[in-house]
């Protein structure tokens, strides 16, 4: 079908597609735009698109009034922390499953997947009570553990599908060349798997950053990340749209960038290799 397009068709279809795309993107655009308005202009009707006084005041105030960076810091610590812990577990597990499979490897993989399908509400009550009894409520450590465990199946699966693409021959060649197991992993496997490991980490960071069930239910202030911070704007007294927009923009910007970079690998990670 592509080969038959006329120049006019190409242009008009492009215009149409861009209109559709911009409509889908509009809420994000509008949020960013609103973050540069004064509170008054943010709620004015008709809305002002360009002709308003651009201001950075909201960004300053978000930090001053609500200590934005504390929440942002928590988000970073939770996302990166859970990813690093997960990586240690997932790399070894995926290595074993991809290169030393046993009869039960497939079952183990599917079982891991099935834990991901457990609705969190099914275990909310005991996890909440255990966290309360162990003093883990509202602690970063507790939340890192939860996020790590929540995403571990996805990490193992993603790495497993990447490792599977590395020909076993090459690892055997290394073994014939006299490499010991640690050397085989460090000098041969890991260098070849760098792209896969990187995209696994990125996806995990995205998922942990945006996680909004456990972070809302298990934190109150000390360990609360940006999801909880934004949620605090839902109360009527928190309703300042421009500041909400500024805080939101700050909260989504880094993840949007990471997400755009890793969009291709995302498909594999989210479908457990079922669509390539």
């Amino acid at each position: 079908m592509e080969n038959k397009q006329t120049p006019l068709g190409y242009v008009s279809f492009s215009v149409f597609a861009w209109i559709v795309g911009l409509l889908i993107f509009f809420p994000i655009f509008w949020m960013v735009l609103t973050s540069f308005k004064s509170e008054l202009e943010a709620i004015s009707i008709p809305p002002s698109f360009i002709s308003f006084d651009w201001t950075l005041e909201n960004y300053v105030e978000v930090q001053e009034r609500s200590n934005y960076f504390k929440f942002a810091m928590n988000s970073v610590i939770l996302a990166v922390g859970s990813t690093l812990v997960g990586l240690v577990f997932a790399v070894t597990c995926a290595w074993a499953m991809a290169f030393n499979p046993t009869k039960r490897t497939k079952d183990a993989l599917l079982w891991m997947l099935s834990t991901k399908m457990m609705p969190p509400v099914g275990v909310l009550v005991p996890i909440y009570l255990l966290f309360r009894d162990w003093g883990l409520l509202d602690t970063r450590f507790g939340l890192i553990m939860v996020l790590f465990l929540m995403n571990l199946p996805i990490m193992v699966w993603m790495l497993y599908t990447y490792f599977k693409e590395i020909p076993t021959d090459i690892l055997e060649a290394a073994r014939m060349d006299g490499a010991t197991l640690p050397k085989e992993i460090i000098f041969v496997l890991l260098p070849m798997a760098v792209p896969g490991i990187a995209s696994t980490m990125l996806l995990n960071i995205i998922l942990a950053w945006n996680e909004a069930f456990w972070t809302l239910n298990l934190t109150t202030s000390d360990a609360a990340p940006l999801t909880a911070f934004i949620a605090s704007y839902s109360s009527p007294e928190g309703l300042f749209w421009a500041k909400l927009s500024a805080a939101s923009t700050l909260a989504v910007a880094p993840i949007l960038v990471i997400g755009w970079f890793s969009q291709k690998q995302l498909v594999r990670g989210l479908t457990f290799g079922a669509v390539k």
């Binding site: 060649a173 073994r175 006299g178 070849m192």
Partner: peptide, 20 residues
């Protein structure tokens, strides 16, 4: 014995070169 201890070397069907 482990493969490396046998003093043999192998050429694989896929060549199995280290791509990096």
């Amino acid at each position: 014995e482990a493969p490396a201890k046998r003093g043999l070397s192998m050429v694989f069907q896929s060549y199995a070169l280290y791509p990096h």
